[in-house]
Amino acid sequence: MLSKRIISCLDVRDGKLAKSVKFVDTKDIGDPVAKAREYYEQGLDELVFYDITASSENRGIMLDVVSRVAEQVFIPFSVGGGLRTVEDCSRVLLAGAEKVNVNSAAVKNPGLIAEASKAFGAQAVVLSMDVLKVPKSAPIPSGYEIVINGGRTPMGLDAIEWAKRGEGLGAGELVVNSIDADGTKEGYELTLTRLVAEAVSIPVIASGGGGKPEHLYDVLTEGKADAALIASMLHFGEYMVGEIKEYLAGRGLKIRMMKDER
């Protein structure tokens, strides 16, 4: 049986680590390569890097970050942010990432998912979706709507429908990020995560709202997620990877424990 994965998300702007809170006001908190290495040593299972660089001329810096991470960190990691074409995806994979993470560009051009999946295999394509809770309506029967541009633009697209469509187009995994929960540290959006996990047969990674180890337990059980994404819990030193994992293993989840290694 597969272990439940703990994944940390590192937002990178102009080559530096940043943590967004409700997608506004970001502040730099360090070197992404050093952080990645630290979490790897602590026993993290996987990493995600989101490039939130504003100007396109600074995007090359991200490729340098990716390649330096790949030289030092021997767990899988994906890269997202600003990937619009198969060529963009190819560049980060060649720099050393296992997977690409597509979001807004895939909503605007769903063909990107299919093209990337054909070129690199479904296992290399993660579809990340930003979701806002809205009143249920005819176009949004689940009451969860896809938004893009960091949560600012509603797309009139039902999140559950989009998840199924993404799977059909060839995505190998889904990141379900709740804009409502993001940055609150009050827990993941369990209903949303469960609805998506029940609608698709590819792994679902819950994102947004993780503040305590109990929150991860809830989303990995009740929320039916295969993995949980965490950011500020680790970035500000409140928790170590090992203590979160020990908590989850202690409550009976199958978790990869580093202390058994030598």
Partner: peptide, 9 residues
């Protein structure tokens, strides 16, 4: 789920 993707003992 297929592929078998992730950590396993």
């Amino acid at each position: 789920k297929i592929p078998h993707m992730g950590w396993n003992a």
